[in-house]
Amino acid sequence: MDVFMKGLSKAKEGVVAAAEKTKQGVAEAAGKTKEGVLYVGSKTKEGVVHGVATVAEKTKEQVTNVGGAVVTGVTAVAQKTVEGAGSIAAATGFVKKDQLGKNEEGAPQEGILEDMPVDPDNEAYEMPSEEGYQDYEPEA
C-alpha cells in the first residue's frame, strides 16, 4: 500500500510541476504579447503594419512553449490582441483601416495563427491545408 501511495504522490508532483510550467509559459506569452502591443503603439504610420505582424510573430513563438489545451486559448487571445492593436492603430490615425491585415508588401496577414497546427491532446499534428499553395516548377 505504501508503494501505491508513494507512486500516487510522485504522479501528483509531476502534474503540479507540469501545471506550473504551463502557467509560466502562458505568463511569458502574455508578456511578449504586451511587449508587441507597446511596440505597435510606438510606431509611426509606416511601421504600424509591420508592428502588428511582430506582435503576432512574438506571440506565436511563445505559444510553442505552452502545451496542451492552453495553446488553443493563448492563440485565440493573441489573435484578438493583434486585431485590437490594429483597431487602436486605425482609431489613433497611425494607419488607414484599409491597410490593416496586410503586410508591407500588401499581402493579407489573416491566418497567421489560424494555420498553425495545434492539437490540445498532444496526440497528432496535421499540416495546414494546401489550398493556398501553388506547385513550383523550376525553369529549365
Rank of each mutant, 00 (worst) to 15 (best):
V40M: 09
E13N: 11
A27R: 14
L100P: 01
V118I: 08
E35Q: 07
Q109I: 14
Y39G: 02
F4P: 00
V26W: 08
K43A: 07
V71N: 02
A107R: 12
E104R: 12
G86E: 14
K34G: 03
K58L: 05
Y39H: 09
F4D: 00
M5G: 02
K97M: 01
A17N: 15
G31L: 15
E28Y: 07
G84S: 09
K97C: 09
G111Q: 00
M116D: 10
V71T: 01
Q62T: 11
I88V: 06
V55G: 01
L8A: 02
A107M: 07
E131S: 11
E130A: 13
A30H: 00
T33M: 07
A29I: 11
G67R: 03
A19L: 15
V95T: 05
V66H: 03
K34H: 06
G14Q: 09
E104S: 04
A91P: 02
Y133E: 14
V77W: 14
H50A: 04
L8T: 00
A11M: 15
A27L: 13
V3E: 01
G25R: 12
N103H: 14
Y39W: 07
V40A: 12
K23P: 01
K21L: 13
E46R: 01
G93Q: 07
G25C: 15
H50G: 04
P120M: 13
G86I: 13
E57G: 09
S129K: 07
G25D: 03
V16F: 12
S42V: 08
T22N: 00
I88Y: 14
G36L: 02
I88C: 10
T33S: 08
V48N: 00
V48R: 01
K58A: 11
K12L: 06
K6V: 03
I112E: 10
T44Y: 13
G111E: 14
T54C: 10
V82Y: 07
K32D: 01
K32S: 09
G51L: 14
S129E: 12
A140S: 13
T64P: 04
E20H: 15
E123M: 09
E131P: 12
M1I: 00
K34D: 00
G47P: 02
V55R: 02
N65S: 02
E131R: 04
G51M: 02
V16W: 07
G67P: 04
S87Y: 15
G67K: 12
F4H: 00
V16N: 08
A29E: 00
A76Q: 11
Q62L: 05
G67M: 05
M116Q: 06
V16E: 04
K60N: 04
V66N: 02
V37F: 06
V16H: 14
Y136W: 10
G41S: 08
G93W: 14
I88A: 13
G106T: 11
P108K: 08
V82M: 07
V66W: 13
A89N: 04
G67E: 02
K34T: 06
G14R: 12
T81E: 02
G73V: 10
E20S: 06
K60E: 01
T44Q: 00
G7K: 01
E28F: 10
V71C: 14
M116W: 05
E126K: 09
G67A: 09
A91H: 08
V15H: 00
V71H: 03
V77K: 03
A140E: 06
P108Q: 14
T54R: 10
K102S: 11
H50N: 10
Y136E: 12
V77E: 01
E123L: 12
T44W: 13
Y125S: 11
T64A: 09
T72G: 10
K23V: 11
G41L: 09
Q24E: 09
P138C: 04
V52R: 01
P120V: 07
K34V: 08
Q24K: 10
D115C: 09
A140H: 06
E130I: 08
A78T: 09
K80M: 08
A76L: 11
E20Y: 15
G25K: 13
G132H: 05
L8W: 10
V77G: 04
A17V: 03
N103K: 01
Q109F: 07
A30T: 10
D2P: 02
A107G: 13
T44F: 08
E83D: 08
V118P: 05
A27P: 00
E131D: 13
T59Y: 01
A124H: 13
V70M: 09
G36I: 15
P138Q: 13
S42N: 12
V82L: 15
V26L: 08
V52N: 00
E137I: 07
K45L: 10
T81A: 15
V48I: 14
K80A: 05
G84K: 07
K102H: 04
P117Q: 08
G36C: 05
S87N: 01
D135H: 09
P117S: 06
E126M: 08
Q62D: 04
A91Y: 14
D135K: 14
N122L: 13
D2G: 01
D121R: 13
V52M: 02
E137F: 04
K80L: 09
G106N: 14
N122H: 05
T33D: 00
G73L: 12
A69H: 08
M1E: 00
K21G: 00
A140W: 10
V48F: 06
K32A: 06
S129T: 11
V48W: 04
E126T: 13
G132F: 12
S87L: 07
K12G: 07
K21A: 07
G36W: 15
T72R: 10
E139K: 11
K58S: 06
K10F: 00
V3C: 07
M116P: 09
K34S: 00
M1Y: 00
K6G: 02
V40D: 00
V66D: 01
T64I: 07
A76F: 03
D121A: 07
G132M: 14
V82G: 05
G7M: 15
T64Q: 05
T33E: 00
V3Q: 08
N122Q: 08
S129R: 10
E130M: 07
Q62I: 15
S87C: 10
A17I: 07
L38P: 00
K60A: 13
G106S: 08
Q79D: 05
L38T: 06
A89E: 03
S42A: 11
V95C: 10
V49K: 07
T22I: 00
G73H: 10
D115Q: 11
H50K: 06
G106W: 11
M116H: 14
V37I: 15
G68A: 00
Q79M: 04
S42G: 11
E13V: 07
I112R: 09
Q79P: 02
G73Y: 01
A140Y: 08
A11R: 00
Q62Y: 03
P128A: 09
S9C: 05
V74G: 02
A29S: 03
S9W: 15
G68I: 08
V15G: 04
G47D: 03
K10W: 07
A56C: 13
D98A: 08
E105W: 11
G67F: 04
F4G: 00
G47F: 15
P117G: 12
E57N: 10
A53T: 01
G31P: 01
Y136Q: 14
Q99T: 13
P108T: 06
G36Q: 04
T64W: 14
A27H: 05
V55P: 01
A11I: 15
A89Y: 13
E57K: 14
L8K: 00
V55S: 01
N122V: 06
P138Y: 09
E126G: 05
A56V: 13
V63L: 13
G31F: 14
T33A: 10
G93T: 01
V118D: 13
D121Y: 15
K58R: 01
Q109R: 04
K12R: 03
V3S: 05
K102Q: 09
G51F: 03
A89C: 09
Y39T: 09
V55A: 03
M5S: 04
Q62C: 11
V118R: 12
D119P: 04
A30R: 04
G36N: 13
E13W: 04
T72D: 09
L113G: 12
G68S: 07
D121P: 15
A53V: 13
P120T: 03
Y133A: 14
K43E: 01
E61D: 06
K58T: 13
M1S: 00
P108N: 10
A29Y: 15
D121E: 15
L8V: 05
K32I: 10
V74L: 13
A17H: 01
E126R: 03
G41P: 00
T75Y: 14
E114K: 03
G73N: 10
G93H: 10
V82W: 01
S87P: 01
E46K: 13
G86V: 02
K21W: 06
K60F: 03
